[in-house]
Design a protein around this nucleic acid. Structure first.
Lengths: 144, 144
DNA sequence: CCGCAGTTGACAATGGTTTTCATATGAGTT
DNA sequence: AACTCATATGAAAACCATTGTCAACTGCGG
């Protein structure tokens, strides 16, 4: 039910889909260019500016597919916007700047343990959790 | 321009606003009736069914006001919908059952400290964080 | 009883995201 | 190269929760 292991996607480390088209490669490239969480609209605008014309619909579809495949991370800003980012593998959380989207991947083993223990203590099973930290980074704080 | 501190709102434990109107009381009552997170539209529909006619706009406004005042908790479902719930005072997180919505309020002072410290260590200011734990409660686990 | 700030609500407008559907494209086949 | 057809694309329309608008209403203070 999940994809078969493909160790030779053709150069990229990310499985794009059945057909690695120009558009999909462009979206993946755009994600690779920045280490910031960006919205679909952001990416669409960036691509257009760069001359890579990709339809907004396609950007949305591609991002969704990548997220479903676990190749990129999604999270929702406090405004309810979905933002995407290419992340390292494995479980981690994010420290995100509200101003520019600058993101630091963080780990908190103690939190994981605590969350799981607490849930079990209340009789909950199949425990998952979400944890994101938002703030204003040093740079953004200065040019308020 | 904003509300003055009033320690005696007039009987309710929740400060509704400058004027405790029929509509606001109705919304507060609806929240008091259930201990699960519900959307504004849900509440609006429930009120209408009960005969308490309150405009959708007013429901939204009231919920937002209550949330701003810290009298109720808001969180966003994975679909991006805002849901509200009457909670105890103070900062806390939620342990929510995926099956029935059963919610347990939890506290994790250590997590708060850790989150703030970590953010500051990376030069972030005005730190906020979101943390929710999802799982399957004992009851739901049995009748899978 | 008057007046005005606070409230209300029908309706329009927003805006991110998804759907629709006609057209295009690419990988395999003949 | 020509053919096929599932897959992919994208412009435009649909969605839909939420917010803005603004005229009408309400209730307490004076």
């Amino acid at each position: 039910m999940d994809k078969q292991p493909d160790s030779d996607a053709g150069g990229g480390s990310v499985t794009i889909g059945a057909r690695p088209t120009r558009q999909r490669k462009a979206v993946v490239a755009a994600l690779g260019d920045s280490d910031v969480f960006r919205s679909a609209q952001d990416i669409h605008a960036a691509l257009r500016e760069r001359g890579d014309d990709v339809g907004l619909t396609t950007v949305y579809r591609t991002l969704q597919a990548l997220a479903d495949g676990g190749d990129i991370d999604v999270l929702r800003t406090p405004d309810g916007e979905s933002v995407y980012r290419q992340c390292s593998n494995g479980h981690h959380h994010h420290l995100v700047c509200r101003g520019c989207g600058l993101t630091v991947e963080i780990e908190g083993p103690a939190v994981e343990t605590w969350a799981t223990k607490t849930a079990h203590a209340h009789g909950f099973a199949e425990v998952e959790h979400t944890l994101e930290i938002f703030g204003t980074c040093h740079t953004c704080a200065q040019r308020h």
